[in-house]
Amino acid sequence: MLDFFLSILKWLLIGPALFCLIGTVFSFIKNESWWVRGFDFPRIQMLVIIVFSAVLLYFFNEVVLVKYILWAALFVALCFHSWVIFPYSPLASKNVKNAENVTENTLNISVLVSNVLMHNRETQKLKSLIKRENPDIVFMVETDHWWAEQMEYLKEEYPYQLLKPIDNTYGLLFYSKKEPTKLDFNYYVQDDVPSIIATFKLDKDSKETFDFYGIHPRPPAPEEAKTSIPRDAELVMVGKEIEKKDNPTIVAGDFNDVAWSHTSRLFRRLGNLLDPRIGRGMYSTFHADYALLRWPLDHIFHSDEFQVIEIKKLEHVGSDHFPIFINLAYIPKEKHTQEEPEPEKDDEEEAKKKVKKAQLDNTTAL
């Protein structure tokens, strides 16, 4: 009887290994179903499970051939996931340089992004972070009317505001110390999911301007969207818009996607955007309450006129997301000295297909 239970236990231990192998295979499938795209997220977790499973297989002797086949498959999966997440380790080369010789005359822009969790009521924690970091721009998502009321005090230090509190978890609150020449909402895919587009002078005495995009697309999840089509379409539409304008740009928000996913990399290539986390770390912002289930969902990408003064994940504010902060120096003379993402030949066609699918989905919904 003991041997029987031990045998069952060993087979149960193989389950996580099979799960990771299936997830690895799905990484190569361009299917938008939420449960398929969900495998894009837990790369680190799958990497740990693969190593753990490979060790456990040493004690699995019932079917030796099966053991060696699994070992081989796990090794391939291990190499793949390591390759995917390696750029987000401090061992990789930095995608964005550290800004050097920064002085009080250096033009810079600092941004704080926070998904507040709509039903979270611990406002004081976020207020304290805003006061301490003193960013030029505060961008908050998942904000309802209650959150808008709680943040009214910001108008004293942040006179330029664009507020869209909504009770559907897609509300946005935007606050800026810098005066915009343009500040407006956009609805790329769905009329209940807004985004922000703004243009600012880097300094009141400067002619130099930059664009800021604040986004929070709908996630692929059973209670939100059955597929990743709405999210994917919004990302590629923003990327295409940035490409056409060719202006210094910062894009920030909760993308409901990880930086290493196919769609995020397509978005970066379309907009020629850099990722300041590459070579520095993952800065995993979600889930704030579960350290073992955490990955980077909140992002700040930018064009190559900027270099990093500081980037950091901030403390817990009662939300399921950590806020993220960045301070960027504007150094246009070093444009094109940083490694921009290389476009691929099928990018334009793929972007068109994603947008068309979203348009068809909206037409069907009507």
Rank of each mutant, 00 (worst) to 15 (best):
G214Y: 04
Y170Q: 07
D211R: 01
I196N: 01
P165S: 10
E224S: 12
P180F: 06
D191V: 10
L173F: 06
A233W: 01
L163F: 05
S176G: 08
A221E: 10
N186P: 04
P194Q: 02
A198M: 05
K226E: 07
Y188T: 02
Y213P: 07
A233F: 02
D184F: 09
P217S: 00
D203V: 08
K178D: 03
G171N: 08
Y175D: 04
R218M: 07
A198T: 08
P165G: 11
Y188P: 02
P222L: 08
K207E: 15
P222W: 02
K177L: 12
K207R: 13
Y187P: 00
L163E: 04
S176A: 12
P194H: 11
R231N: 10
D167Q: 15
Y175I: 07
N186T: 09
F200K: 04
D167L: 13
Y188D: 02
L183D: 02
I229R: 03
A221S: 14
R231D: 00
D205C: 12
Y175V: 03
K207D: 15
D232P: 07
A225S: 15
T169M: 13
D184W: 10
A233V: 09
P180L: 08
T199E: 14
Q161I: 10
D184L: 07
G171W: 03
L163R: 06
L172H: 01
D205Y: 08
F212S: 03
R218P: 03
K226Q: 12
N168L: 14
P217D: 01
I215V: 15
V193I: 11
S176N: 04
F212L: 08
L173S: 05
L172C: 10
L202Q: 10
L172T: 09
K182G: 04
P165R: 05
P194Y: 05
T227V: 10
Y213N: 09
Y187A: 02
L162H: 05
T209G: 12
I196F: 08
T169A: 13
D205N: 15
Q190V: 02
E179A: 14
Q190D: 11
Y170I: 04
H216Y: 12
L183H: 01
E179N: 11
K178L: 06
P222H: 05
E224I: 09
K164W: 02
A233E: 06
E208S: 11
Y170D: 00
T227K: 07
